[in-house]
């Protein structure tokens, strides 16, 4: 069965996000009011030939931790669902 995993990587709250800061600043300059802060992360989609979901999830957790994110400064959220 085909599975789809969506990994969202975001910076930990304490980590400076220059990208977000620059966008927030630009919005402010454009006259957009009320934006308190902007944080930018990564959205990663993986299509996987499924199998045992538990094992798959464990594997995905591992690659999210080892490769897709840097635990030193980022958090990730894993969403695993059926379908391509």
């Amino acid at each position: 069965m085909k599975m789809k995993a969506i990994v969202t990587v975001t910076l930990k709250p304490s980590i400076l996000d220059p990208q977000g800061e620059a966008v927030a600043h630009a919005l402010q300059n454009m006259g957009v009011k009320g934006v308190q802060s902007v944080r930018i992360g990564k959205h990663i989609e993986l299509e996987i030939e499924g199998g045992d979901e538990k094992a798959l999830r464990a594997k995905l957790e591992e690659i999210s931790k080892e490769l897709l994110s840097n635990p030193v400064m980022e958090n990730f959220h894993l969403d695993l669902r059926a379908g391509g």
């Binding site: 220059p18 990208q19 620059a22 966008v23 600043h25 630009a26 300059n29 454009m30 930018i40």
Partner: peptide, 14 residues
């Protein structure tokens, strides 16, 4: 131009 973190030139056009 503006750090170009989002996309190069994206902010500058405004």
């Amino acid at each position: 131009s503006y750090g170009d973190y989002l996309r190069c030139g994206a902010i500058a056009r405004f």
